[in-house]
Design a protein around this nucleic acid. Structure first.
Lengths: 117, 117
DNA sequence: CTGCATCCATTAGGATACTG
DNA sequence: CAGTATCCTAATGGATGCAG
């Protein structure tokens, strides 16, 4: 388990979630993996303008935290797939709800009123 | 609207949510405000070991993004309260779900199995 | 009480070039 | 194809001290 997560455990469950799923691209990554396993390259294209380095690091963190499973196939050319654990699927639900919230936040015509009170 | 949010709008709704609600303490802050308005000091005690500076900045960002409303009372000693907008209340629901996820993530005895697949 | 100013250490994340 | 190595900048968040 990563240190930020361990520290968050001392504080509150919400911060645990933030420690695991916070940071750019993680929530989107988990959401994109919800329908099924994807290869690294596919995932990178789906997620958006994320650098390979950053996506790799986020995936490694998610793997360490038990959210995704990384599978390496001994083939040429190399193939690596990522899929969600059960915890990851539960997180994907929340990611999608955050997406719904974001969609409404951006697009709702009543937004100005919504945001001012 | 803050730049990170504007940038996220070009990408995907989930990243909009992350841009608005990501970062330490923001989700917890929103959750603590769900029952009703709180003063700055009350909020700081409720949220946890967050510095005044950081909490202030997060609250300003949340205010700019239309998630909380900041009210200053012309009194001595000064009194400032924070309360959620409608968008903030919707976000609080998601924060609580993330908290439930984190609680299960931390406490579920089947965690090791859950996290390994 | 609220919260700004300043300084500081750590981290996040992108760009580029390179490897098995 | 799926990364890793290196360098870089900007942002994050805490500590302390001061102010209205």
């Amino acid at each position: 388990m990563r240190d930020p997560v361990r520290r968050a455990m001392e504080i509150c469950p919400i911060e645990v979630g933030v420690a695991v799923a916070g940071g750019d691209w993680k929530m989107t990554t988990v959401s994109k993996l919800a329908p099924g396993p994807l290869r690294f390259g596919e995932l990178q294209r789906e997620v958006g303008p994320v650098s390979a380095k950053t996506l790799t690091r986020q995936l490694r963190a998610l793997e360490t935290d038990g959210v995704v499973i990384r599978t390496v196939y001994a083939e040429v050319p190399p193939r690596v797939t990522y899929e969600l654990t059960e915890a990851g699927m539960a997180l994907a639900d929340i990611a999608d709800q955050l997406g719904s919230w974001g969609k409404k936040y951006v697009g709702d015509p009543a937004d100005s009123e919504l945001r001012s009170g």
